[in-house]
Design a protein around this nucleic acid. Structure first.
Length: 421
RNA sequence: GGAGGGUUGGCAGAGCGGACGAAUGCACCGGUCUUGAAAACCGGCGGGCGCUUCGCGCGUCCCGAGGGUUCGAAUCCCUCACCCUCCGCCA
């Protein structure tokens, strides 16, 4: 949620910033009026309550024989309060609903454009691999090695599910431990979070109500399966006032992620690029507002280190404003080259959500003199297991179907070549 | 799953229809004292929202959450969440 106050204090700058994301000025003017109305009603309710409270208090202090008439008068004041409160409740409801739909203010440095207009900042890792044989995609490589079973997963769970087996399973453990080690070296505390969360956590992180169709819900328990550990990590400090000395708070969560992928029918149907359940190591930081740009670069740096360390060729993309999620002010993706697809595909994504997510979560920071302020939150993929596996096996494959294990992963995997037997 | 007990300020803990945002202790911050420190003493010490001559300030709401009763609720009633104890089950 954006700061409603901005519509009054900085109407032009706010409108200009949001215009880049396609929010029109007239809609913002309506929102500003709604916010004005809210504040006015709050003042009226407060005043009515002050009157009624004073009257009640006087009754307690009055002699018993004087109370009858006073009680009657107070009863009428009570009705006034109730009417004003009902009006306010209605306005608050509309306010919450309509403001929830306003996306975050884009970062001034985020490029213009829509999906596909991303700016490639640089490439990382080795040069784009040139294979002197027809490359096979991850499905062929993994299934031939009995490291992946999609057919039986279809039988058991349906489309977009997978069994990782044998060296496929070992690859996950090794990649996760490798990524966690890098994250820890950069000060992120490893966390295994709950993956079933309450509605408040989904709402606070902005996945509800916006992405409702993407979320798996349980039938009997009012709990939701998280689509990323960003949710439980962000919600960790929900409703807290943090000690500035304790900031930044940095986490690396490892968890399965569940996504319904509604609306993605027919898209990326082959293999494990887009599945309903995958595992991911996610970086998450709570920082003081003035530190969030630097933290964003830092998180991006960790992602680059992880992929470069796996000797995976990838490009860093500055995502245009038209392709940002509602809560992001700026976003960088890492896109790894996939020989099996002859294309760069997203393997990580890191976002600076500034105070947008913190406002809903009520994650604040104590300020020595003055009012407490909202912290900034940032999230980024350290390593999405399935997509990392795809990039790794496709880029490091050899003509005989074996895969060379990058040096950094050897200690974690316990072998230098995969799929050799 | 069954039975019982709880949830009050950073922590401990009183209050159980009217003067209670809430005693007291500890912790913390400032001051006095001291060569310095400790002790002692004095003072301060939550959050949200709104107003504000932005200067201290003023108003309102918050005693797990939501709803109800009442002129008036931390206190009474209902629903929910969480915690603890015992039994059952279980990795």
């Amino acid at each position: 949620m954006i700061d409603a106050r901005l519509l009054t204090t900085e109407p032009d700058a706010t409108a200009a910033a949001l215009a880049r994301r396609g929010v029109d000025a007239a809609a913002l003017a309506d929102l500003r009026d709604l916010d004005d109305r809210r504040r006015q009603l709050i003042a009226e309710v407060d005043q009515a309550r002050a009157q009624q409270g004073g009257a009640s208090k006087a009754i307690g202090q009055a002699a018993p024989e004087d109370r009858g008439a006073m009680i009657q008068a107070a009863q009428e004041l009570k009705d006034v309060v109730a009417r004003r409160e009902a009006e306010l409740a209605e306005v608050l409801d509309e306010h919450a609903r309509r403001f929830a739909a306003v996306p975050n203010l884009p970062h001034p440095d985020a490029p213009d454009g829509v999906e596909g207009d991303g700016v490639v900042l640089r490439t990382i890792g080795p040069d784009k691999p040139v294979l002197d044989f027809p490359p096979r995609d991850h499905v062929a490589l993994l299934e031939d090695a009995d490291a992946l079973d999609l057919a039986r997963a279809g039988k058991v769970s349906g489309a977009r599910f997978a069994y990782l087996k044998g060296e496929g399973a070992l690859l996950e453990f090794a990649l996760v431990r490798y990524a966690i080690d890098v994250a820890m070296r950069h000060g992120h505390t490893p966390v295994i979070p709950p993956v079933l969360v309450r509605e408040e956590a989904m709402y606070g992180t902005g996945f509800l109500p916006t992405d409702e169709q993407q979320i798996f819900a349980t039938r009997d328990d009012d709990l939701y399966l998280v689509g990323t550990s960003e949710v439980p990590l962000a919600a960790l400090h929900m409703d807290e006032v943090l000690d500035p000395a304790a900031l930044p708070l940095r986490y690396a969560g490892y968890s399965p992620c569940f996504r319904r992928e509604a609306g993605a029918h027919g898209k990326d149907t082959r293999g494990i690029l887009r599945v309903h359940q995958f595992e991911k190591v996610e970086l998450f930081s709570f920082v003081a507002p003035e530190d969030s740009d630097a933290e964003h670069e830092r998180i991006l740096g960790i992602e680059e280190e992880i992929f470069a360390g796996l000797e995976i060729h990838a490009q860093v993309v500055d995502i245009p404003v038209g392709d940002l999620g509602a809560s992001a002010a700026r976003k960088f993706d890492l896109e790894a080259w996939l020989p099996g697809q002859d294309a760069y595909r997203e393997v990580t994504s890191c976002s600076n959500t500034t105070d947008y997510q913190a406002r809903r979560l009520k994650a604040r920071m104590r300020v020595a003199d003055g009012d407490n302020v909202l912290v900034h939150t940032l999230n980024g993929t350290a390593l999405a297991v399935q997509r990392a596996i795809i990039a790794l096996v496709e880029q490091h494959q050899r003509a005989d179907g074996t895969v060379v294990v990058p040096e950094a992963l050897v200690p974690h995997l316990g072998r230098e070549v995969l799929f050799a037997s």
